[in-house]
Design a protein around this nucleic acid. Structure first.
Length: 134
DNA sequence: CGCATGACGCCTA
DNA sequence: GTAGGCGCCATGC
């Protein structure tokens, strides 16, 4: 297939759909959502889409989407409060404990069924891995 | 059609 | 580890 035209630039709808898949007690980064949506989607676009939720904020768990540093990018929406209510824990720096709550992405079956892409495995930081350049 | 903005991310100092 | 700058894409005017 050359240049997947897709149906339309339903980036917003796709972003909302993927975000809804994030289970309670877990969080995903804007970049993660962008990768899952694929098709040129970018973390910036994800933030834009979530910001445009409006009344649909009640149907989409936007609170489970945070920045790559594990911090809350929003302000005045009680995002941290909502996450804590789900069991998400924060450290002293107001950062989510990603090691314990970072979403591993949708199941391969679900992703393919909806035309999305599963989240690639994250590199596990190990002391030995640093020495293994190739 | 071009400029400015934004709930981001990566690199460098 | 913290601070600043550039790049990314889509949307709105």
């Amino acid at each position: 297939m050359s240049t997947p035209p897709r149906d339309e630039r339903d980036y917003f709808e796709r972003i909302y759909t993927v975000t809804t898949q994030v289970p309670p007690g877990q969080v995903a980064t804007y970049g993660d959502i962008a990768v899952i949506v694929g098709d040129g989607c970018d973390a910036r676009v994800v933030g834009h889409a979530l910001g445009a939720l409006g009344a649909r904020a009640d149907s989409v768990p936007w609170q489970r989407v945070i920045n790559r540093t594990g911090g809350i990018s929003t302000s005045g929406y009680g995002q941290r409060e909502a996450l804590e209510a789900e069991g998400v824990t924060f450290d002293e720096r107001d950062h989510v404990r990603m090691a314990s709550h970072h979403w591993t992405g949708p199941s391969e079956t679900w992703a393919r069924a909806h035309g999305f892409q599963p989240l690639p495995p994250r590199e596990v930081k190990t002391p030995d891995a640093q020495l293994k350049l190739f």
